[in-house]
């Protein structure tokens, strides 16, 4: 199965990013494909490499980067949502790229299932 994932919430305010990450990881480990993870709304904060969670907390930014490294997952941050939140190329964590909302629509078209994480 080819999944597209949409993350609509920030990593520290809401569990949606954790759920999306754990879903993506489990799907990949089961041999499924993640066509793309698209970050929208406060979800763009998942890409901020300046984030410094406390040492005993999970670090979602690093976890996403590691997932992208291991499985070559396409992590795309919405440019319009990112710019208004100060997320720019020079603070992007490894594995993320900034692009347009069209990438989300394309994901919906290409994936067998497009799944939203967030309120």
């Amino acid at each position: 199965m080819k999944f597209g994932i949409l993350v609509n919430e920030g990593p520290f305010q809401h569990q949606a990013s954790d759920s999306a990450y754990l879903f993506a990881k489990a799907a990949l480990e089961k041999g499924h494909e993640i066509y793309r993870v698209f970050f929208y709304y406060d979800g763009v904060n998942n890409a901020n490499k300046l984030s410094e969670p406390q040492a005993d907390d999970r670090d979602l930014v690093k976890l996403w980067s590691a997932l992208a490294e291991e499985y070559k997952v396409d992590l795309v941050v919405c440019v319009a949502a990112a710019l208004r939140r100060g997320i720019k190329d020079d603070i992007l964590a490894p594995g993320f790229r900034i692009s347009g909302l069209g990438q989300l629509i394309e994901s919906g078209i290409q994936a067998d299932r497009q799944i939203t994480f967030g309120d």
């Binding site: 929208y40 709304y41 319009a80 347009g100 909302l101 069209g102 989300l104 629509i105 394309e106 078209i109």
Partner: peptide, 18 residues
């Protein structure tokens, strides 16, 4: 901000002729 950014999303989908 959900409503505003949703509207932006709708406009893009329209550009893709879906």
């Amino acid at each position: 901000v959900y409503a505003l950014e949703m509207l932006e999303k709708v406009l893009i989908a329209a550009a893709f002729e879906q």
